[in-house]
């Protein structure tokens, strides 16, 4: 009886530990998606910072755009999707805001 309990526990542990390797998704690894989004965010933020330094953006617009980027990245992380098209609207939004200010 005790041997049976031990074998049962062993089996449960082995199955549970090995299971993730047996059910690898063919889709893109979501962890990589998440890392990509974060890299993308850092790059956008750096771009905005350098545009501020070079005088292309005003301080107010810079801060506003940074807040917007932050919010949209957070939304993106929460609703992580395999489609990358959702990232594009962030850059579109930045361009629209810049255009509005330059008019």
């Amino acid at each position: 009886m005790l041997y049976l309990i031990l074998i049962l526990i062993l089996l449960i542990c082995i199955i549970y530990v090995v299971y993730p390797f047996l059910s690898i998704s063919k889709d893109q690894d979501p962890l990589l998606d998440e890392i990509n989004i974060k890299i993308r965010k850092n790059s956008l933020m750096s771009e905005l910072d350098s545009e501020l330094e070079s005088g292309i953006l005003s301080t107010d617009l810079h801060n506003q755009l940074k807040d917007d980027v932050e919010k949209m990245i957070q939304l993106e992380l929460q609703n992580l999707d395999k489609e990358n098209s959702k990232i594009d609207p962030i850059e579109k939004m930045i361009q629209i805001r810049k255009d509005e200010k330059s008019k």
């Binding site: 526990i9 449960i12 542990c13 549970y16 530990v17 090995v18 299971y19 993730p20 390797f21 690898i24 690894d29 979501p30 962890l31 990589l32 890392i35």
Partner: peptide, 20 residues
């Protein structure tokens, strides 16, 4: 190595310690 599979497996191993 950014392997979600290995991370999930490591997490499951931690869960199993509760059973043992």
């Amino acid at each position: 190595i950014s392997s979600k599979t290995l991370l999930k497996s490591a997490k499951n191993a931690n869960y199993c310690t509760f059973i043992t």
